[in-house]
Simulated assay, not measured.
Amino acid sequence: MMNISLRATDNINDNASTSIQKGFGNDSTPEGFILQLTYRETTFEITFTCVILTIAFFGCIGNLATIGKIVYDPKYHKPTFAVIGQLALADFLSVTVLTFDNMTNFSKFLPEFTVFRDIFQLSSFFHVCLLSAVRYLITVHPLQSRQHLTVKSMCLCSLTIWISSGVVIIGLIYTAEAVPKIYVLTIYLIFNVLILLIVCSVVALLHVKKIRTLQNSLSVTEQSQRRMNIVVTVIISIFVLYQLFIVAGKIIFTFSDQLIGYYLIYGFVIIGSLNFSCNPYILFLSQII
């Protein structure tokens, strides 16, 4: 997720650009300023581009529909749906920026574009944790939740997440610039592994505690619990795959044959697009809340 190597060293896409991004021209020429697709030459690349754009399209539509439904339908003006709406906003921005960043040469002209990508993605991950915490509190501590969990408080929590994400990403970028280049990869890997552990631990532990509480409730069937388990499993699995692709790609580009890393980019983009596109469908439209 995090690209602390924005200025300090090359990231996955930067390393691949010399051999994958063909036909962009030199920045000093008019052709170099034309927005172009990255993968457009071979049949495989065209197919890959169509798949990613399709996933991104439905991801954007799903997230926007979720936001619109929550905002304009009063029955969804509840703390849980407020967090889902904020998550949908972060996912919409993430999948949009991720698609432009990886499928076009846009970031070639505006390198700072990747900073926003990292902020949006980190915000999305933390909103997933916030949603897990809210659902846990509403299930396990319903009386206290009615007093303290309000739409306003959820919006304030979301605002805190956005600000914190920006501070963390910008802080790590400047940290990477200040330390010797040899340590940048270590910082990069430590950060991504920490995000992986934090998100997985929070979501999994709160879900397990919630399920144990629901087992004592006669109003919740085994089928409902099974569906909840499936939802959490899907969310965690896609997130873990996405983080692993990032870490593996960086390691391979640094220490191994970069040609192998180029193929990892395809998996990285697909999993990333799915990661930020599937949440509205499995959390809101499927009505498993």
Rank of each mutant, 00 (worst) to 15 (best):
M1W: 02
N3A: 09
L6R: 12
N13I: 13
D14G: 01
N15W: 06
I20M: 11
G23C: 09
G25T: 09
N26Y: 11
D27Q: 03
S28K: 07
P30K: 00
P30H: 00
L35Y: 00
L35H: 02
L37H: 02
T38I: 12
T43Y: 07
E45W: 12
T49D: 09
I52M: 08
T54V: 04
F57M: 08
F58V: 07
G62I: 08
L64V: 13
I70D: 05
I70Q: 03
V71T: 15
P79H: 03
V83A: 09
I84E: 14
Q86P: 02
A90Q: 03
D91R: 00
D91P: 02
F106T: 00
K108D: 01
F109S: 04
P111M: 00
E112P: 01
F113A: 02
V115M: 12
S123N: 11
S123T: 15
S124F: 08
C129F: 10
S132Y: 00
S132T: 05
A133F: 13
L143T: 14
L143H: 10
Q144R: 10
T150C: 12
V151K: 06
S153K: 15
S158G: 14
T160Y: 04
I161S: 06
S165A: 15
V167L: 12
I169N: 10
I170E: 09
L172D: 14
L172E: 13
A176F: 04
E177N: 15
V179A: 13
Y183K: 09
L189R: 03
I190S: 06
F191M: 07
N192L: 04
L196F: 07
V202E: 02
V203W: 09
A204W: 08
L206D: 01
K209N: 08
K209Y: 03
L214S: 11
S217L: 14
L218A: 13
T221F: 01
T221L: 11
E222A: 15
Q223K: 05
Q225I: 12
V234D: 06
I235M: 06
S237Q: 01
S237E: 07
S237R: 00
Y242N: 13
L244I: 07
F245N: 00
K250Y: 10
K250R: 12
D257A: 10
I265A: 14
Y266G: 04
L274V: 04
F276D: 12
S286G: 08
